[in-house]
Amino acid sequence: MSNIATGRPGRFAILANPTRFLELSGKVQPWVYGAAIAFVLAGLGLGFLAPEDYQQGATVRIMFIHVPFAWLCMMIWTVMAVSALGTLVWRHPLADVSIKAAAPIGAVFTVLALLTGSIWGRPMWGTWWVWDARLTSVFVLFIMYLGLIALTRALDEPGKAARPAAILVLVGWVNIPIIKFSVDWWNTLHQPASVIRADGPSMPPEFLTPLLLSAAGFTLLFFALHLTAIRTEILRRRVEALSKLAARKAERSDAGVAS
């Protein structure tokens, strides 16, 4: 791969300079957190003002967090899949940092999707858990998040884990359409899609508006946390590189004193 500089660097090339990335992201960061909190509060506030569902009663309020969490656990893996392409195809220096930073956040939202779903399922289905297609495929996603977290933190030299992690993310991405369409392909206890469907959402605006606000808010919250985690990871790698440098210098000066 030749590395000849072309006329104008693209948007991603500018972000490839970690120092520039730290500068830009530092300015953007507080606004993303602010917007995330505003959207989440608006969504959940409207959600509690919404009337109760005629079938599900007040438990419909769990939807305003459960659905955004479930959406996020799929979106975060997809963000990591794009980052994996960044590692394998474009050799973007921040792509594997992005994967490592996103994995724990994705794992937390996956746990919450499973947990809130289980708490909702108990009064509505009469059971905390069933091994049906939707629940099982999300559980598999959770296990894959854990595997990825272990892999990205297993090796001392972070660059060495970049390629295997990217491959795991891309191979694991096949699970995402399986999760999405599991409710159509198999007979499940879980209800079918009611927001993203070919003939439009099948939900009254009293429920749809707070749900979309809350989903937008938690999505922004993910990007804010992801940004912070990427910045921290860049700093961590600088600390490691500098500590090694300092150790080498100390060794050399020790040797100098001895001889």
Partner: peptide
Amino acid sequence: GFILAAYGFS
């Protein structure tokens, strides 16, 4: 209780 538990854990 279910609603509080779901929001609380989250």
